[in-house]
Amino acid sequence: MATLHKILVVEDDPDIQAIVRLALELTGGYTVEVCATGYEAIERAPMFAPDMILLDVMMPGIDGPDTLHALRALPQLGNTPIIFLTARVQPHDLERYRALGVRDVIAKPFNPMSLAQTLQTMWSTYDRATDA
């Protein structure tokens, strides 16, 4: 059974970057790679080979959905679970994210204290789904 080990975080806000990195590294023990833009993520993701991607929706340059499409097109990342990090969580937004193939959504503001645990729980459900 695969273990959640490496997480790629794509987020333009430096403070959120710092919080997510701290929370995931410290309380989750994960290896975290942070990218500030979608371009950076597309460039660095294949080398890093993350188990999971946490992707901000609203970013300058290419936004979350466009980044998602580009990442999905990369052969190594076709099945990597992608989770959106966003403040826009109206039902119609969620509908749209689901249509894009997003596995889960973490709403901003989030609780940094439980972020690692939340991702771990999400991961274990994907794992079971894959096993089944």
Partner: peptide, 27 residues
């Protein structure tokens, strides 16, 4: 199924302190 990691009070406390520092910088 993998059990969620056990909460470690020291790490939680360190995380809180780290967040407090980020918050201070943000302010």
């Amino acid at each position: 199924m993998i059990e969620p990691p056990m909460r470690d009070p020291l790490k939680d406390a360190q995380l809180r302190q780290g967040i407090a520092q980020i918050r201070q910088r943000y302010l």
